[in-house]
Structure formats: C-alpha cells, structure tokens
Nucleic acid binder design. Structure first.
Lengths: 333, 333
DNA sequence: GTGAAAGCGCTAACAG
DNA sequence: CTGTTAGCGCTTTCAC
C-alpha cells in the first residue's frame, strides 16, 4: 500500500475552505481571519500535510535553493567557507546544493548547467579560474552569483575575499625583513588568478620595495596538496631559498614536514609563512605562522550578499574585502 | 528587459512537432525518427533551450536530487565521506543537497523535514545518534535512506561502515599487548551509539580477553575537537594511562600535541592510536598510528547503495561492512 | 477575508 | 513514430 500524499487540495476540502486560503495560511499571509487560520492549521496538523516544495517552486519561480560550487570539500579552506555559507543560508531558509568542481573547467560548466536547470535562486562560486564560458552562462541566466574566498581578475562579479595582494606583500616583506635574502613563493596553479595575478603581484611588490631582485627560480608552481609540498621540499631548499611564502595550508604542512624530515630545521634554517589559517596551522609542529583570514565570515558574508542580490536589494559594495592579519607562530623566527 | 525563458512549447512550435516529441528527444527516448530528432536538437540548440528540472520534477515525481545530512563539513572524516558520495552521485546524475546538522537532534529533524518537502529521491545520513522521531520521519515518507560511516544500534537502516567493535578491540588489544597496563579510551559523546555501543564494547572486549579489569576512570568522554583533546591531555596522563585509543583524528591530534607540549614523550612514555586515518594522521609529528578505513569508499558505496534502493533494485546486503586495517606509524612503539 | 480559475513547464498515458 | 490530453501541487491575479 503506497502512502497517499496529502495535497493542499485535501486540506482545503477537510477544512471547508479554498486552496487559496490554505495557501495563504501556509505562507503566512496576514489576510486570513484568525478563526479560519486556526481551522486550517488544525487540519494541516491532523493530516500531517507538508507542502510540496517542487510544486511551489514551479508556481512561484523560486526554489529557496542555491547552488554552491566548491573545488574540493576535503580542503579545509573551502570547508570552512562552506560552513559559513551553510549557516547563513539556513538562517534565511535556503538550502544548498553542493557541487564539487575539482577546480576543473569543464566540470564546472556542466555543474553550473545542471544547477541552472534546477532553477536555483542564486549561486556561490568558489574557485580561482573562472572561464569566460562560465561567466557567459551566469550572464545568460541572469542569476545572482557571488564569488567567495576566491577572485576573478576582472572584478565584474560580486565577491567576498581579503586583499590577497596586500596580504602576500606583507607576509613576504616580513620574511625579507628578517634577513632572508631569498624568499620562495610556493603556490598552486599559475592558471589560477589568485596565484598569477594576486599572490605573484604581492610577492613582486615586496621584492621591489625592499630592493630585491625578482628571480623566477624562486617561484614554485604546485597543486596545493600535502604530498606535493612534501616532495618539493628538497627542490625548494636547493634553490637557495631560506624562507617561503606558501599559498595553501596543506601544501605548507607538506613542505614543512618535508623539510623537517630531510633534516632542515624550521625556523632556524628555513622560515615559512602560510596563508589560510586553517586548523592545520595549529596542528603541525612547529605551528605555522600564517596570514589570518576570517574564513567563516567570508562564507557568511558571501551568503548574506547573495540573499540581498536575490531580493534585488541595493548593495552598495559588490566587492567586499574583509580584513586579514598576520600571525607569528613557530615557523618564523 | 527580462530574459524570456524558452520552454518546451517554444521548441515544439519552432520545430513543428509536438511537446511530446520534444520531451522524447530530451529524454533520449528511442522512439523518435532520426530526422525528427535532429530537427528538434537543432532548434534546442538555436533557442538555447534548457529543460526546467523543477517542472520535470513535478510531473515525473523524481527530482534527481538527494539529501545528505552531515554533522560537520569541516571535519575531515565526514568531508572525505562526502567526497565519495558526491563522486558517485555525479556519476549517476544526482545532485546533492548538503545540510549541516551540527549533530543536533532538533536541527536534524528540521533539516530532514525540509529535505522531504523538497522531494529528494533519497537521503544519506551521517551521524551517530539517530533519534526515534527522525527514524519515524524516514518511515512515514517511505524514502530510501542509507546511513554512511555511522551507525545505528538497531540495524534496521541500510548502512555502510566498518566493524567498529572489532576495530576498536584490535587496536586496544594491540596497545595492551605491548605492556601498557592502563589504556584509556577517549571518545566523543557517549550519547552517540558509535561510542557507547560500539567502541566501548570493543574496548571492554579487549580488556576482558587479555585479562584486564575495566576501569571507568580510564574512559574519557569529549566532543571530538582539537582543543578538547589538547586540554584533556593532562587529565588523561594523570589517570595513570600510558596509552590511549582515540575516537577521532582531530581529537587525537589535540591530545598528541597536548601531551607533547606538556613534556610527555610520544610514543616513549605514552602511546596513541587514532581511528579515522584522515590526512591529520600524516601531518602531526609524530605521525599517528591509526585504524584505517576506506573513507572515500564508504561514501561511494553508500551512494551506490542508495541508487539501488531508489530504483527498487534487489539489494542482498543492506548493511555493508567494509574492511578496516591497523597501521603503525609513530605514536606507537 | 475568501474563492475561482488560470497557469508554472513538463511527463505520461493513450490514441492513432 | 508522433500528437493529444490530462494532470503534477501549488501560487497568484482578479472578483466578490
């Protein structure tokens, strides 16, 4: 015996009112006489009626669902952002369709397409390599999108992030300032604009302002994984660098352990500053000095911004920059 | 100028066929003459038509969306499971609505309710404390649910996990076998059945079979967080224990660092075995010995099982137990 | 304050 | 192989 789903029609009949009235009480429309409201509510309770969100979505053209594109859920950085997003979304009664993109353009495109097909009310995009085709989809769908904890070189998308150039510059300057002649920059793919256009820029600015020469032998392009960091330790050390600024905490943890396991003393012989201030920075030994970012807040503010966009509210600041800091732990002297 | 959405009706008109035919080509129904198919496909392409999944869901009563309830996305254990779930879901063309439950019963209940309202085709539940009210909702909705990487004391839900009792027993026996008279059990909330009914049981079995007395002073109930582990280090050490089996990797990392920072040498003076084999086990120094689990596979198999359930396929084994292992790293001698 | 009725965009018999 | 015709369950004018 299949369970018969109870519909708004059933409620209307049992309560001896019209569907419209039931709809009104369900949606909290004030134009219902209290007595009627109570009568309807009682029937809803008795029949255990639960409004069908799909039907509602079709009729109202709103799904109260947003899409979130994340490069990798298992990366602590993105996971922390996702937590902030989820909390605020829940607060505003939105649900989240979470889709892993693997930081892969074609998968991103495909994922965005199915998200649009599902009529999500908005999108939060994490990832640093937004292709034009993707941006074109966003425009075509005229759907609110906010970029979170990531960056798009043409700032034509609403976004929430920190000032990556300044943060990198400050961290590198700091490293340079304590006598390190050669400071390496170790980041993920240079195809990502956060690395190529922001961190590299901050790095060069730091060199320039302190009168150091830029040397591309000191720039290491990786893939943000622990193992890569671990394996590159030797190469990085051999470059003559005595310090490094690293673009991801897992990567930094790998580098740190790789150095340590090869007998390099950190921070005595090599200094390290990482960038995302995730849990990893406290777990490694020595603990890692890092740029600090309000990770949860970046996600939360992004989601809040998206709600405004979805409601067509005025937003004065479409590109929110949150403050960063620099914390000295034990991988710097 | 708002963008006019193009519907199946527009395509039908332009291609001079019926909506039904368009629907057939969109859904890959073979009963369409190739010439007709091509004609329709061309129009779809020209008009840039994208089927509305909400309408489709209403008409077909299938949303190709599943709900995933996760206690905490930022916990590496659950995140790894989620990755496996997501990959297989994508493979079968399902999307995932991800909802954080904070391991909080009332939030779980609320989340499940909105998921059901959204007409998800199935549910994957992670969490170890499934209330009866929750189970009741599942039944009432007669919706396929599979429990992943977690456990429900009454095994009446389809599930995928490892044998937590045996794993705990083996790890504890191992610790006992190397001369530790007092082995602590450090786990999260005892309200969670995985701790109370499984790990504690394995722990007691190990004691019993090796002729050791059970002593509840050696059982520590925590909350699975790094900081808690760190802070409890002293108390645990003071209990006289010289080894501990820990129920979560972050917790274990906290305990490890807490001990180390208090001058306790691990593994020389204190041995430690953790349980989830996440990235943390490699990152800490010393690296943590651990029970090993096929985390990704647990998620993947759970999702695969769910697809079968959703298709009403026969499933011979509703409670899948995947193999675990025990790996010696550097927190055991 | 309440009801009637027309969709929302699509699928699924059922004919032919 | 293709078209017709009902809905799916709800929101939303528009009257009254």
């Amino acid at each position: 015996m299949e369970k018969q789903t109870v519909t708004i029609y059933d409620v209307a009949r049992e309560a001896a009112v019209s569907m419209a009235t039931v709809s009104r009480v369900v949606n909290g429309n004030p134009n219902v006489k209290p007595a009627t409201r109570k009568k309807v509510l009682d029937v809803i309770d008795r029949l255990d009626y639960r409004p069908n969100a799909v039907a509602r979505g079709l009729a109202s053209k709103k799904t109260t669902t947003i899409g979130v594109i994340i490069p990798d859920v298992t990366n602590a950085y993105f996971a922390e952002l996702a937590l902030g997003i989820d909390d605020i979304a829940a607060m505003y009664k939105y649900n989240i369709i979470l889709a892993n993109s693997d930081e892969n353009g074609s998968k991103e495109l495909q994922v965005v397409n199915t998200l649009l097909a599902k009529q999500v009310d908005g999108l939060i995009f994490m990832g640093n390599n937004m292709g034009d085709d993707l941006k074109h989809e966003f425009e075509r769908a005229s759907m609110p999108v906010v970029v979170a904890g990531s960056v798009d070189i043409k700032q034509d998308m609403p976004s929430v992030s920190i000032d990556y150039v300044a943060a990198t510059k400050e961290a590198v300057t700091n490293l340079l300032g304590r006598g390190n002649q050669k400071v390496a920059l170790v980041v993920g793919s240079m195809k990502e604009s956060i690395n190529h256009d922001y961190r590299l820029k901050g790095y060069r600015q730091a060199l320039e302002e302190t009168g150091n020469e830029y040397n591309d032998q000191l720039v290491f392009e990786t893939n943000d994984s622990y193992n890569t960091g671990y394996e590159m330790a030797e190469e990085i050390k051999n470059s003559g660098a005595t310090a490094a600024f690293v673009g991801d905490d897992e990567l930094a943890a790998g580098l740190l352990n790789g150095l340590t396991d090869r007998g390099v003393k950190v921070p005595a012989e090599f200094e390290l500053t990482t960038t995302n201030d995730t849990k990893y920075t406290e777990i490694t030994r020595p603990k890692m000095s890092s740029v600090t970012q309000p990770l949860y807040d970046i996600g939360a503010v992004a989601m809040r911004l998206l709600t405004k966009l979805m409601n067509n509210e005025d937003v004065t600041d479409r590109n929110v920059i949150l403050p960063y800091g620099l914390i000295k732990r034990d991988t710097t002297r």
